Simulated assay, not measured.
Amino acid sequence: MEHPILFLCLILEKLGLPSGWHYYEEADKYGVLAQLLAPHMVHSYFVIGIILILALVARSKRDFLPGAFQNVWEFLVENIYEFTKSNLPHDKFDKLMPTVFPLITTYSLYILFSNLLGLIPGFMSPTANINVTMGLTLITIIYYHYLGLKYKGLAYFKDFLGPMPWLIPLMLPAEIFSHLGRLLSLSFRLFGNLLSKEILLGILTMLGGKFFAPLPVMILGVAVGFIQTFIFVLLSLVYFAGAVEEHH
């Protein structure tokens, strides 16, 4: 399948910057800048910019009687807060919330906006690239190990050994493979669903026209965008909670 026409990359290319798949695939020829301005990176910057602008506008227009825009943001933040609260251990809630809640909020907004961006013609979903989803997953994996060590110390490694010494030869390999599996499943699930949606949209557009043929897939794409955001956030919270909970 040919590379799609991406407006942001075309704009940067007109400005003389190496942005596009052909530059990225020949990064040894065009240098580090071609990697920094790869299509998935450019669209990731774009999503981050949109979120920052919306957040700054919402912050600058806080009123005692909120308008529609402020109500939407308050609704989003409040629901993310309650969802995070309900999935963290109650005895460690006060200590975990100041660091976990901002990360989960960032995950929710970034992944959702990235998922939905690909539904706009001339744009792509950054989360349809394995580099992006793997990066997000690594943040989750590293952070929940950090939480485990922070709250349990070296006793955290006992969780990998099982309840009895004679089970260590069985439990240790199983736990190691389990954690490696999390790295693969969390990143490939998000990447695979978004990539398949974009490929299907491209095929239907070529076969059936630009308007009505892709419409069912676009509707499905909206649902996939929300569902995959929810799954990624939920699993991240489960891993955070599991790292700090005492196992009996």
Rank of each mutant, 00 (worst) to 15 (best):
H22E: 14
G20K: 12
M97G: 04
L200M: 13
Q35M: 15
L220G: 14
P89V: 08
L194T: 11
M171S: 11
N131D: 11
S114F: 03
P216N: 01
M97H: 08
L184F: 12
P169G: 08
H145L: 13
Q70N: 01
F157G: 04
L183K: 05
Q70S: 13
H145W: 14
L154F: 11
M218A: 11
F188A: 11
G181M: 06
T133D: 06
S236Y: 02
N131I: 15
H145Q: 04
M164F: 10
T105K: 09
E78N: 12
L184C: 10
L54W: 05
P163S: 10
M124G: 06
F113R: 06
M1C: 06
L117A: 10
L36I: 05
A241W: 02
I104N: 07
L138A: 12
L103G: 02
N71Y: 00
H179G: 03
A34W: 08
I130M: 09
H40M: 11
N193A: 03
K152L: 15
P165T: 12
R189M: 10
L170M: 12
H43K: 00
Y144G: 05
Y143Q: 08
G20Y: 04
I231F: 10
F64D: 03
F101A: 01
S108M: 13
A34V: 02
L215W: 04
G162F: 06
G242D: 04
F191N: 04
V77G: 00
A213G: 02
G122I: 05
W21P: 05
L154Q: 07
A213H: 02
V222H: 00
G221P: 02
L186K: 03
G67E: 00
Y107D: 14
F188W: 13
L56H: 00
V132G: 06
V100H: 07
L215K: 06
Y107P: 01
G202V: 08
P126Y: 10
F211V: 14
F7G: 02
F211R: 09
P126D: 04
S108V: 09
N87K: 15
F191A: 00
V42A: 09
Y23S: 05
K92G: 01
Y146S: 07
E13K: 14
F160W: 15
R59L: 10
Y239P: 01
L234V: 02
N115W: 07
L96N: 06
M206E: 15
L154N: 12
M97R: 06
Y143C: 06
K92T: 03
H40N: 11
A243D: 11
L170C: 02
G67S: 00
T137D: 02
Y30C: 07
